[in-house]
Every structure is written in structure tokens, then in C-alpha cells.
Design a protein around this nucleic acid. Structure first.
Length: 830
RNA sequence: GCGAGAGUGGCGGAAUUGGCAGACGCGCCAGCCUUAGGAGCUGGUGCCUUCGGGCGUGGGGGUUCGAGUCCCCCCUCUCGCACCA
């Protein structure tokens, strides 16, 4: 009586074996045509491994192992996104050194990944908090600076009052801090930006190169970049030399522009009121607006607030004097920060006009209808015909924008223009645990970049981590801050902010090809040999963060001659998240299921299969109420069934030629069909159905034994095929049984099985007979059946005949060999 | 409001091209085995049924010999964007 699957010692043995002989090491440079770069988004080391990691790694590892078995040289590295707020917060709350905290988490996560049986190339490990890594963040920063892609500017920025740092637009979700959910406020600060807007068109257009992206993800990015087409129009301002430019998507409504609005924070507002009685009221108004959180400011329910600046602009198309207002519904950083207001045809302008009793003039009407400005209750923003617009009266809406813009351009009043929702990437952070920005400030020379040979600017350790509203933690490292200017040798101060950690993750996949390089971020030749990433996997939560920033940086690298591919990851698999009771697992919710317990009770393979079997990889996985015990019923018992079959049958040896019986052929056919469909399933990442097919095969093998089947070659073919097909998903059990079957090499180094087409083809199929579209009989037939035979067999069926009755058959549709459909008149059935 | 995606048994899900809806598994039911079972084995399991059959993939209509799949309308849910001019 063979014993059950005892995984503990087996897992330990093979884990050691794989690591010691570097089983997953990729060559420095791959053979041409054989490379596959498989990458999973590097994890943030916030503690030990959690179920989210287990899911991602299980899927990703199945991909990598499958590629390897298909003869590819696979680069499958792992590293750690090691900078970031949680380390610092842990340091503040528990008095632990952020460095120690981070590295100890990295150690835990690294060995848990080994225990899970991941096939990473362990020696390529990187941690972004190593000076050897972040030195190159600083190097890239300087390169960006040289190219005019990094600049410092005072601007209204998103400030999280709890985390006490600024945030990028991408990190503000519904007006709240993405990390701690605190409402964000605007602050005026001098900050560093990366000029991602220079690449907006390319980021938009190259999305089509990413064939392996979901439409959903592409649409998220398109939305975020938000390109719109329209016109820039010049408005003269009374008493000002220079005209002011506004951006509009509807230049055809210019004749309906009855007032002009600037954002309260806009410098034009200050300029227009300085020295006038309005000056103080504007300052007050601006302060009022500044106190609002982004949520309040952008709430559509809130009443729009405005202030008449007592100045006038001239409408360029009709020379009308229109009043200039400051209003909180106009944003400083979109377009030019000033707009022409067309209340009749824009809902926001309409509400504002009604509130402050400003004139409304209709210039677009629905065909054949009249709109009355005095009685309308909302703006009319649909298609129509131009009216009250001089020579353009009667122009239909489908041409009006083009025609008017052409005319404006001809007369020097405006021009065609486009605009983006995307803003430049704010990379300064007022926090400690990140890459110091390699810039010093000199009273004499101003902003001075740290020379390359002075890199890295190492993060100081003697720092008060506690964040404040006034200064970054690094400012408390007074000795570190004080430097001599690299240009003039005079006194200077270091920039005390650190970089957004998304800078780190925007190029880490290049570092993996050459992780120990001291002279450059990476060797370009090597990177070119491995890039692009053939299969990337990770969560969709990075849709407009990492996945957008990394694409931007890749394009800059390309322009610098450091990359050859416009897109770094054309194929992307977005796994779902692991939840329980529909909510993301988290300590604060108390709905955590620990992988450690699962490892101990059921082993890594059962846990991996459990994740893979639950559903498609893109779907979220809601952990069942039972907790880890669910693994027992769903996958551990089946693994044990596989184990016992191998234990009971591995000593079956061949004794010369054996005649094959029909049941032998049946099992062989099933084996080859299974190879075919499981291979197809792997190609489309459909692991849940692959496992289902393997379960069917195992069921069939047990049935074969129970009816007396026992052909040694067939049994062996079954076991070896099963182990190979299962190996990418359950690496430990398959490795152990592979060796128990007498092999000296690893199952993971075997070639993925191929099928015999003759065997995989079905010889007998079930032919369905329909009468008027309804299934009336099913008949077992040979695959090679002819259409005539099909008709004969169908018409011979009692069941079919009773449904046809006396009626004549009007039409017969045959789809050999599976289907025949008889059409008879619906009338009086007797 | 704009954009994207989804809706299938008690549950997770399957059906790649318009061709037997519900594979595989969980759960449940019955039986066998066992001192015992949270083990193992066998069979059953969409709903209704007068046992002929009828109905069935969110609802309604359409195309077709045939629709979960294609087309139109509607409902619900999820996600993203949203005072972006």
C-alpha cells in the first residue's frame, strides 16, 4: 500500500537542488532567435509573501517554465521595488531603521518565493534601495536634465496632508491620496518634473504596437492622455499690449462668447488687478479657493464661485467688449488657464452666467428649431446649425469647427491646436526613503547638477524621519545638505527631496540583463539582445502609473540610443487580485489568509494549483470562506491521486511485445488529445481548463486500470506525459515522480510533449441530428462519415422519424461529421 | 455625462470558428468500504414534467435550418475618466 504524498521533504530537496545548480540561470546573451524575456512586476517588500504574490507568481512561473520546456532561453529575473513610504512609516511608528526593515522583508519574500518553487534567476536580484541601483536613477535624472526633460518649476501641486508629500496626478484618485485616502490639497511648491507631455503623441500612437494588451488597458491610457483637437484663439485685452490665447474645442461658438474667465491662481489674474481696487478681493478669493480640497473644488454639485476683475477683453470675431472674471471652475494647468465662456453652449459657462447674470447668446440651433436664450434651462451642446455668426450663419455642425478655424488662421486670429489632459510627471517627494535628487543650489550659480563622477549621492542616515509640513526629512541632515558648489566652489545646498519610486521602476527591466554593471546602468548590447519583454505580467492597478511612465522612459532611452524598441512590453497579462468577501485582503480588514499556513498544510504545489484552477488569470479570485482548508478538497486530493497512481504503477515493466487491446488505444488517444488541448490552453494562459483536461486524463487512466488495462508502455506513456504537462504548474511533485520513474535529469528540462496527429484526431464522434433546429437524436459515427451516409443514418432513426412524421423534408444541412439538420414545414403536425 | 468590460446551475467556472449549454471541480444526494471519518470507491445532481416531452445562458425583439455566441432596444453590475473649455 503506497503512502500519501508527503511534500515537506520533497519540496526541501528539490528547492535546494534547483538553487544550488542554478537551474534557471539565463545566459548573458541569448542565442539569436531563442530568447524569451518573461517578467513579472517586481514586488514591493512590505512584509512576507501574501496571497497576491502567490497568485501572480503561480501564473507567471507556469508561463516561464512552459517557455523553457519549449526550447527557449528564458530570462526570468526577480528584484524588489524597495524604496517607498511604508518603510519610512514603519520606521516612524516602530522606531525601526527603514533600511533594516526593508532588507529583512526582502529576505523573507525572496525565500518564500523560493519555497513556492518559482523559477527565477536568483542571482540577478536587484533592490532599488541599493546605492548601486539608485546611482543610475540619478544618472538618468542628469541625462534627462541635459535633454531638457527634467525641469524645476513652481506650480500648484497635489499635497497629501497625511503623508506630507506631493503626489503625481496619477497618484491622486478621486481627489484623494492613492495610498492613504486623505483628501488632497493644492500647494505652491518648486518641484521637479519630467516632461512626459513632450511624448504625449507618441505614447498615444504607439499604443497600437502593444498587440498583447487588452482593449481595456489601452483605453485607460488613451483616456488618461486625453488628446483633444480644437483651436487657439487670440483675445486682445483692453489696456494690455499682448493678446491672451485661449484654447477651445468649439471655435464655431466664438460669436456666443459673452465673457472671459481666468483661473484665480493664474498670474494673468494678478497682473490684471494689481494696483486696482479688485487686487485685495482677488487675494481673498484665491485664498478661499486654495483652502478647498480637490474633491470640493472639482465637485460638480458645488456652486461655481467667481469674481469680476473689472477688466475687458475683445471678442476677436465681432469686436465686442466682454467682461473678464476669475472663477474656480477654470483650471490653471489645462490649456492656457484662460477660457472664452460660451454660456449658451457649455453647461459650466451656462451655470456661471445664470448665477452672475451674465448675457447668454445662442449661436447654434438644432436644424429647424429656435432656441431662446432667456428661457433655456441648460446649455445646448448638441449638433446643429450656426446662427448669429455673421457670414457663417447656416453652416452645419459637421463642418463648422473646421471652417471657422481655417478662417481664424487666415485672418491671424487663431490656429488649429490640440491639447492633452496629461500633465508633466511630478517626481519630487518630500520623503526620506527614496533616491536623492542630484542637484545642488548655489546662491551664485543657481541650480547646479551633481557631476556624474560624484554619483551616487548617497542617502544620509542621520535623519529625523518624521515628515513635517515645512521641509523634507533630508533637510534635517544638515551636514549632508551643506556642500560646495560644483561650479564655483562657493557654499551650496543639496536638493532635499527624493524621487518618486516610479522612476526606479521605469527602467529596472533593463538593469536585469546586466545587474552588476558598475560603469553604466546596463550594457546596451545585452539589453538589445533580450528586449523587448516577451511576456510581462502584473496587476492592472498600474495602468496609468508604472505602465505609462515606463513607456515614456523607454522612448527617451530610445532617443538616447540606449534602447531599440519603442515599446518595452508589447505583451501584458493583467492578473486579477486576491480578495476575500469581495474585498482586497488586508490586515486592517482582518480578511487575510496566510500563505505560510497553506505551505505547511498542503505544500507549494497544491497552493499553486489552487490559484491556477480557480478561474482565468485576469479574473479576481475571491478566497472561499473556509480559508486554507479549501485547498484540500480542490487540489490537494487530486495531487495525491496523481501521486498514488505513479507510486502504484511505476514498477510496471515491459515484458517483450504486447498486443494492444482496444482500451489501450483508447487511453493513448486520450493522452494525445490531452497534449493537444493542454498546449492550446497554455498558449492562451488558460490554466484552469488545462488542469481540467489533466483531471479528465487521470480519471480515464484510473478507469483503464479498473477495467483491467495494464499495458506497460501505455501506462508509462501516460505517467511521463502527465508529469511533463503538469510540471510548469506543480514543479515539486512532478520532479520527484520523474526521478522515481528512473530519470536522472530534471522534468523541467524535458521537451514539452508533442502529439501524434493521427492519435489526437477523434475516430468516433457523436453526430447530432436536429429537426427544425431541435436536437432529436445523437448517433455514434466514424469521423470519416460521408454526407450521404449521414442522411441515411439520420433518416433511419426512429426518434427522428417520429418527429418528421408524414411531412416532406424541405432542406437538409450537413456539417460532417458532427451535425445534420433536417428542415420540415412547421404546419399541421399529426 | 464620456469611455471600457461583464451578466451562464447552490458555488468557482467551461463552451477558441454560429452547431449536443453547463466540461472540470466544489457542494449536495444515494450506495459501498471502514471500529471510526473532515479518508477512499461507485452512481446521481440545470428547472418543470402527465415521463411523450417542455423550458432554460439578465429582459424584450430580430437574423438563421440552428444563437450563450451575430444585430437592434432595454435593465443591472464592475472599472476608468470627469467643472479638461
Amino acid at each position: 500500500m503506497p503512502s500519501d504524498y508527503e511534500f515537506t521533504s520533497i519540496e526541501t530537496r528539490w528547492m535546494k537542488d534547483w538553487i544550488e545548480r542554478k537551474a534557471w540561470a539565463a545566459p548573458e546573451v541569448p542565442d539569436p532567435g531563442r530568447k524569451r524575456y518573461a517578467l513579472t512586476m517586481y514586488p514591493y517588500p512590505s512584509g512576507d509573501m501574501h496571497m497576491g504574490h502567490v497568485e501572480i507568481f503561480s501564473i507567471h512561473d507556469a508561463i516561464a517554465r512552459y517557455l523553457r520546456m519549449n526550447g527557449h532561453q528564458v530570462l526570468n529575473p526577480i528584484g524588489f521595488d524597495a524604496f517607498g513610504l511604508p518603510a519610512e512609516n514603519a520606521a516612524i511608528q516602530r522606531g525601526i531603521d527603514p533600511k533594516k526593515w526593508t532588507y529583512s522583508n526582502i529576505d523573507k519574500l525572496y525565500s518564500s518565493a523560493q519555497r513556492l518553487g518559482c523559477s527565477f534567476d536568483w542571482d540577478r536580484k536587484i533592490a532599488t534601495c541599493d546605492p548601486e541601483y539608485y546611482k543610475w536613477n540619478q544618472w538618468f535624472f542628469l541625462k534627462f536634465y541635459e535633454r531638457g526633460l527634467a525641469y524645476r518649476r513652481e506650480a500648484p501641486v497635489n499635497w497629501c496632508p497625511k503623508d506630507k508629500t506631493v503626489l503625481a496626478n496619477e497618484q491622486v484618485v478621486n481627489g484623494r491620496c492613492e495610498r492613504c485616502d486623505t483628501p488632497v490639497v493644492k500647494r505652491y511648491l518648486a518641484q521637479w518634473f519630467f516632461k512626459i507631455t513632450d511624448y504625449a503623441d507618441r505614447l498615444l500612437e504607439d499604443l497600437d504596437l502593444n498587440h498583447g494588451w487588452t482593449e481595456r488597458l489601452k483605453s485607460l491610457q488613451r483616456n488618461w492622455i486625453g488628446r483633444s483637437y480644437g483651436a487657439e484663439v487670440e483675445f486682445e485685452i483692453e489696456g494690455r499690449d499682448e493678446p491672451v490665447v485661449v484654447y477651445t474645442t468649439r471655435p464655431d461658438t466664438l460669436w456666443g462668447a459673452t465673457f472671459f474667465v481666468v483661473a484665480p491662481e493664474h498670474e494673468l489674474a494678478t497682473e490684471l488687478t494689481v494696483g486696482t481696487p479688485v487686487e485685495d478681493r482677488l487675494a481673498e478669493f484665491r485664498e478661499e479657493v486654495g483652502r478647498l480640497t480637490e474633491i470640493d473644488r472639482t465637485s460638480t454639485e458645488r456652486d461655481k464661485q467667481g469674481l469680476f476683475l473689472e477688466r475687458y477683453a475683445i471678442n476677436p470675431v465681432n469686436g465686442e467688449r466682454i467682461p473678464i472674471w476669475a472663477a474656480d471652475y477654470v483650471l490653471t494647468d489645462y490649456g492656457t488657464g484662460a477660457i472664452m465662456a460660451v454660456p449658451a453652449h457649455d453647461q459650466r459657462d451656462f451655470e456661471f452666467a445664470r448665477k452672475y447674470e451674465l448675457p447668454i447668446r445662442v449661436v447654434i440651433e438644432p436644424p429647424g428649431e429656435h432656441l431662446d436664450a432667456d428661457t433655456m434651462t441648460e446649455s445646448y451642446a448638441h449638433d446643429g446649425v450656426m446662427v448669429n455668426s455673421d457670414r457663417f450663419d447656416g453652416t452645419p455642425a459637421d463642418r463648422s469647427v473646421q471652417v471657422v478655424t481655417d478662417w481664424l488662421q487666415e485672418h491671424g486670429l487663431g490656429r488649429h491646436a490640440k491639447n492633452f489632459r496629461l500633465r508633466d510627471w511630478l517626481i519630487s517627494r518630500q520623503r526620506y526613503w527614496g533616491t536623492p535628487i542630484p542637484i545642488v543650489y548655489c546662491d551664485h550659480c543657481g541650480e547646479v547638477p551633481v557631476p556624474e563622477d560624484e554619483l551616487p549621492v548617497v542617502l544620509p542616515e542621520d535623519v529625523d524621519f518624521a515628515p513635517s509640513d515645512q521641509a523634507s526629512p533630508l533637510a534635517t541632515a544638515t551636514d549632508w545638505v551643506r556642500v560646495t558648489c560644483f561650479k564655483c566652489g562657493g557654499p551650496a545646498r543639496r536638493d532635499t527631496d527624493t524621487m518618486d519610486t516610479f522612476v526606479d521602476s521605469s527602467w529596472y527591466f533593463h538593469r536585469y540583463v546586466d545587474p552588476h554593471n558598475d560603469d553604466a546602468p546596463y550594457d546596451v548590447e545585452r539589453s538589445n539582445a533580450w528586449m523587448p519583454i516577451d511576456q510581462y505580467s502584473g496587476g492592472i492597478e498600474h495602468a496609468v502609473l508604472h505602465l505609462l511612465y515606463a513607456r515614456f522612459v523607454q522612448k527617451v532611452l530610445m532617443d538616447m540610443g540606449m534602447a531599440k524598441d519603442p515599446e518595452p512590453f508589447p505583451n501584458l497579462l493583467n492578473q486579477g487580485v486576491v480578495t476575500m468577501y469581495g474585498k482586497r485582503m488586508s490586515k486592517s480588514r482582518g480578511n487575510i489568509v496566510e500563505p505560510q499556513e497553506a505551505f505547511e498544510r498542503y505544500g507549494a504545489d497544491a497552493l499553486r494549483l489552487f490559484m491556477l484552477f480557480s478561474g482565468p488569470p485576469e479574473a479576481n479570485f475571491d478566497w472561499p470562506e473556509e480559508g486554507v482548508t479549501a485547498i484540500e478538497a480542490r487540489t490537494f486530493r487530486w495531487l495525491n491521486r496523481v501521486w498514488l497512481f505513479c507510486e502504484e504503477n511505476r514498477d510496471v515493466v515491459s515484458v517483450g511485445d504486447l498486443a494492444t487491446e482496444p482500451e489501450d488505444d483508447a487511453l493513448r488517444r486520450q493522452i494525445h488529445r490531452t497534449i493537444k488541448v493542454v498546449t492550446e490552453d497554455f498558449e492562451r494562459f488558460s490554466y484552469n481548463t488545462a488542469i481540467a483536461r489533466l483531471q479528465e486524463l487521470v480519471n480515464q487512466a484510473y478507469r483503464y486500470k479498473s477495467v483491467g488495462g495494464g499495458h506497460p508502455q501505455v501506462i508509462r506513456e501516460f505517467m511521463e506525459t502527465l508529469l511533463k504537462l503538469l510540471a510548469p504548474m506543480a514543479p515539486y511533485l512532478t520532479e520527484e515522480q520523474w526521478h522515481r520513474l528512473g530519470h536522472d535529469d530534471s522534468v523541467h528540462e524535458q521537451t514539452w510533449p508533442s502529439f501524434d496527429p493521427d492519435l489526437a484526431a477523434e475516430d468516433v464522434v457523436t453526430m447530432v441530428v436536429q429537426v427544425n433546429g431541435k436536437v432529436r437524436d445523437t448517433i455514434e459515427v466514424a469521423t470519416s462519415i460521408t454526407e450521404d451516409e449521414m442522411k441515411d443514418r439520420a433518416l433511419a432513426s426512429e426518434k427522428v422519424r417520429s418527429h418528421v412524421g408524414e411531412r416532406t423534408i424541405a432542406k437538409i444541412i450537413t456539417r460532417p461529421p458532427r451535425l445534420i439538420s433536417l428542415v420540415v414545414p412547421e404546419s399541421d403536425r399529426s
